[in-house]
């Protein structure tokens, strides 16, 4: 494995996280509980797709096969996608959307704050931009966690259920495989495992303030680094890739 090959894989993973979460959030357009929230969620989706484009473009460069970011996004099969399982989970109700946003944005804030120091200049630049956006995503998620947790009995119950349901997908965020470790030694990748304590304590603090309980530890689902997904990803890709697959010669 060369550094370039490892970096390609690393960048694909980051790009896929942004793309698939952006896809899920974009499904919420015109479905928000209030118009302001429709705009906020669309805005976060837009940040995510923008980040995906920057990362997949870089992946295409590293790959060196004259592919574009669109070829990479629209012509890969499920097994070659490496987004975290949590990003592909269906939106469910608004509480579920917020729980997913909370877990991911708190993680991403810690992650990109570290990636900013990467020796890889492109990754560092992308991280710098991402931090600014994630700061807002995180605040948005925390605000709603507090409102729903400490709002009505129903909102509390819904959010607690969503947090419990998604908890089993949070373990993956801190996994390190040989690609991560290899790039960590070269000061390119982030030590994700080392983020866990901070993430856990921040989640504990937010949930406590929101009068919610921290979910009990359970078996953590895993697979994305190997391309093994939940059943959801296939449906996302069949929708997302439809035009590119149906009209392979067309330029859009």
């Amino acid at each position: 494995m060369t550094t370039k090959e490892a970096t390609y894989n690393y960048v694909i993973r980051l790009g896929d996280n942004a793309l698939i979460l952006g896809h899920r959030l974009s499904e919420l357009c015109s479905r928000g509980p209030i118009l302001e929230e429709d705009l906020a969620l669309t805005n976060i989706a837009l940040d995510m797709i923008g980040r995906a484009q920057a990362l997949l473009k870089y992946a295409a460069e590293l790959e060196g096969k004259a592919n574009t970011e669109d070829d990479i996004a629209y012509r890969r099969a499920e097994i070659n996608y490496h987004n975290y399982l949590i990003t592909e989970q269906p939106n469910g109700d608004f509480a579920n959307v917020i729980a997913r946003q909370l877990f991911i944005s708190v993680y991403e804030y810690l992650f990109f704050s570290e990636l900013e120091n990467s020796k890889d200049e492109t990754l560092s630049a992308i991280a710098k931009k991402a931090i600014k956006e994630v700061k807002y995503h995180k605040q948005h998620a925390i605000d709603w966690t507090l409102r729903l947790g400490d709002g009505t009995a129903e909102s509390h119950k819904r959010l607690q259920k969503a947090l419990n349901d998604l908890w089993m997908y949070t373990g993956e965020l801190f996994e390190m495989d040989n690609i991560d470790t290899y790039l960590l030694h070269q000061h390119i990748a982030v030590d994700a495992m080392a983020l866990k304590t901070k993430w856990q304590s921040e989640i504990d603090r937010i949930l406590t303030e929101a009068t919610l309980s921290v979910p009990e530890d359970t078996y953590m689902q895993t697979g994305s680094k190997k391309g093994i997904h939940t059943e959801n990803l296939g449906h996302i890709l069949s929708e997302m890739q439809y035009l590119q697959r149906a009209y392979p010669d067309a330029k859009w």
């Binding site: 499904e27 797709i49 923008g50 590119q244 859009w252």
Partner: peptide, 17 residues
């Protein structure tokens, strides 16, 4: 969700926003 390029998807999202 079916926009045929990442650029087109962003433009459409921004427009709807």
């Amino acid at each position: 969700t079916r926009a045929p390029s990442l650029r087109a998807k962003q433009i459409l999202l921004a427009k709807i926003q």
